[in-house]
Amino acid sequence: MAQATEAQKIQLLQDLEIEMMADMFNRLTTSCHRKCIPPVYNDSEIAKGEAVCIDRCVAKFLDIHERIGKKLGQLSMQDENLLKK
């Protein structure tokens, strides 16, 4: 095992991506629970308003995730271009 083969590299990248996704999902769950579910548990059902809140929260979180990804990509591209000059 001197060098990682191409297949191993791809496997590693895929594993990393899955792990990153899982981490993002955990953060999403924690954030949306904190923002949408008040700490009063008179009922075990999800209230209507809470359900709507969760749906919007998930949508918004993923939206922001994407936007930040794009911004980060742009910024790192700019940095690379600057370094090349």
Binding site: F25, L28, H33, C36, Y41, N42, S44, E45, D55
Partner: peptide, 20 residues
């Protein structure tokens, strides 16, 4: 309160993963 919290937590998780 604790048992409601538990049940609600599981339901919320389920809903979030569905949307996700």
């Amino acid at each position: 309160c604790t048992s409601n919290c538990l049940e609600k937590f599981l339901k919320v998780n389920q809903r979030i993963s569905q949307r996700f």
